[in-house]
Design a protein around this nucleic acid. Structure first.
Lengths: 154, 154
DNA sequence: CGGCATCCACACGGATACTG
DNA sequence: CAGTATCCGTGTGGATGCCG
């Protein structure tokens, strides 16, 4: 269960407490919007709170890492060799590219293939699973381009 | 121009060099897919490389921060008070919530409003600009939920 | 070419305490 | 209630060098 390993802090704990003994407790892993209820004593409780982390957060941690989205995006048209990928993604160091590629590979979004040429060449290809992410990545791209040019980032 | 302030490394520099003197140089801020060309001497150059960072990367740095997407998402149904937001987003500390909210406010995606009640209450509301992000955030959510449950995150 | 190893600064983010 | 302030460990990520 993917909830395991996520740290819980005061709020999480509160939520857990507040859902204790309630119908449906612990099963609220859906992503319905949370809301707040007030009980007879005026205490406020969260209902259907984001099951730490909710789908949005979970998704962001998979493709939201630095350079991760860019890498995936640049693989959409076919296999790309390592150094070419590095050339395409200006600003990212080889170390970063490597790390993110390994991560994407571990999660099955990207496939690594070594061709026995000399010198050796390695290509990275987006998998079918990885391809399912391209949809909203394109949404993100369009949104990003629609933003005011002078919006400062960093 | 939002390119200012972004660090450029070896790859970026190479890209800049390789486009020197070419038609359209410096104007390639679109997000067409980059490709690699090989010249007569066998040297490889990037064409239309991601103008560091490309739209994907830029977008990610606006809404891809830890908890940022979740916060925005939980504001979609109307104004929410600070502590309620904290209750909804299990796992995030008040410090994080505050920081991300300030950032979202600076970028005009969220509006902060102080009501003069006692004790004081503050609500956060998504702006029209912020609302434009909800589309692909929902895409992200759907994608995330479609993923294998056992995909390990972190 | 496609990395990995190492070093290191600094930003991120959690915990805790305090405040108007 | 809605934060701010402070401390401080840890992770992230850049720079550099080396290798088969």
């Amino acid at each position: 269960m993917w909830l395991e390993g996520w740290k819980r802090n005061q709020y999480t704990f509160r939520n857990l407490v507040s859902t204790e003994g309630l119908p449906g407790k612990g099963a609220a892993m859906t992503d319905k919007t949370a809301w707040i209820e007030e009980d007879a004593e005026g205490r406020r409780h969260a209902r259907d709170a984001c099951a730490e982390p909710c789908a949005i957060e979970r998704g962001m941690r998979i493709v939201g890492g630095k350079w991760t989205g860019s890498i995936l995006w640049h693989l959409k048209d076919g296999p790309v060799r390592f150094n070419d990928l590095a050339r395409m993604i200006g600003g990212a160091s080889k170390k970063m590219i490597t790390e993110r590629l390994r991560q994407l590979e571990d999660r099955g979004l990207v496939k690594r293939e070594v061709l026995d040429t000399s010198p050796v060449s390695v290509t990275y290809e987006i998998t079918d699973l990885g391809r399912t992410a391209l949809g909203f990545l394109d949404g993100l791209r369009q949104w990003s381009e629609s933003l005011p040019r002078d919006l400062h980032v960093d």
